[in-house]
């Protein structure tokens, strides 16, 4: 039986993992390769690396990170952040990435998804999106007034969540999948960092409208949240950062919890 995946996310700036970590047994908690190896040994099913600077100046640093991690860790690696064309993608794949996450660049030029899928296969292309609830969709749709915002209760934001697009994430998910994205990585900006749970309505809405796997992101604070994203949110995988970085829980604990609640998970590898 196919298992649900648990995916730690590592934000990278200047070749280092940023966002706080509290590892006691690592010499250097900010080193991406060390952290990746630790998560791998604990049973992480994949790893996601995001270049949070998303700038071409940082590209070589990121390539070096991917190269180092991929020669030590043999699980799927997704890399994203500022990759704008097929050549950017190719460099990451050559460095050892398995999947490329595209976000803002795909919104401004959706054919990027198609080009990447044609060149490398759909399994390589992850469409990432940052989504926020629209403040008050009801007032925006008062009878007799023109609809000024997306009808949907959510909106896609780009450029690290700074720029609204008026794009409905559910429609964007369908478009992305039809253009060839093999997976969707859906981050709720409202939930992100609050540790109060994923946006389950958003996840369920997207998951039931596309055939490709959906990775839930943003909001994990307790193990129960992971379960909810997979059960009520119908996600295929859950991504989390601080819950693992701060050692609130280890990957083993998370998997043991999910298994207890009847979710199929891959046990941590025997060391």
């Amino acid at each position: 039986m196919l298992t649900r995946r648990l995916i730690p996310c590592l934000d990278i700036d200047g070749g280092r993992v940023v966002k706080g970590t509290s590892f006691v047994n690592l010499r250097d908690a900010g080193d991406p390769a060390q952290l990746a190896a630790l998560y791998d040994s604990e049973g992480a099913d994949e790893l996601v690396f995001l270049d949070i600077t998303a700038s071409s100046d940082e590209r070589d640093t990121m390539i070096d990170v991917v190269r180092r991690v991929s020669s030590q860790v043999f699980i799927p690696l997704t890399v994203g952040g500022g990759l704008r064309n097929v050549e950017d993608m190719r460099k990451m794949l050559e460095a050892g990435a398995d999947k490329i996450a595209v976000n803002s660049a795909a919104v401004s030029r959706p054919s990027l998804i198609e080009e990447g899928a044609r060149e490398f296969g759909s399994q390589c292309i992850v469409l990432a999106m940052d989504v926020k609830r629209v403040q008050d969709p009801v007032t925006a749709q008062r009878p007799g007034t023109p609809r000024m915002v997306a009808e949907a209760p959510w909106q896609v934001f780009t450029h690290g969540g700074r720029r609204p697009t008026a794009i409905d994430p559910i429609k964007w998910s369908r478009i992305g999948a039809s253009l060839g994205a093999g997976e969707l990585l859906v981050t709720s900006m409202d939930a992100d960092g609050r540790r109060a749970g994923y946006d389950l309505d958003l996840l369920a809405a997207i998951s039931s409208s596309v055939d490709v796997p959906v990775i839930a992101s943003g909001g994990a604070g307790r193990l129960e949240h992971l379960y909810e994203a997979l059960a009520a949110g119908k996600a295929d995988a859950v991504l989390a950062a601080s819950i693992f970085h701060f050692r609130t829980h280890t990957i083993q604990e998370a998997k043991a919890y999910l298994a207890e609640r009847g979710v199929p998970v891959r046990p941590a590898p025997a060391s």
Binding site: T3, R5, D45, P213, D236, P264
Partner: peptide, 18 residues
């Protein structure tokens, strides 16, 4: 359909399987 969950199985088959 899978034995777990209520949704149809997705294609591609992506992830860790026994």
């Amino acid at each position: 359909h899978s034995a777990y969950g209520d949704g149809a199985l997705k294609v591609p088959h992506m992830g860790w399987n026994r």
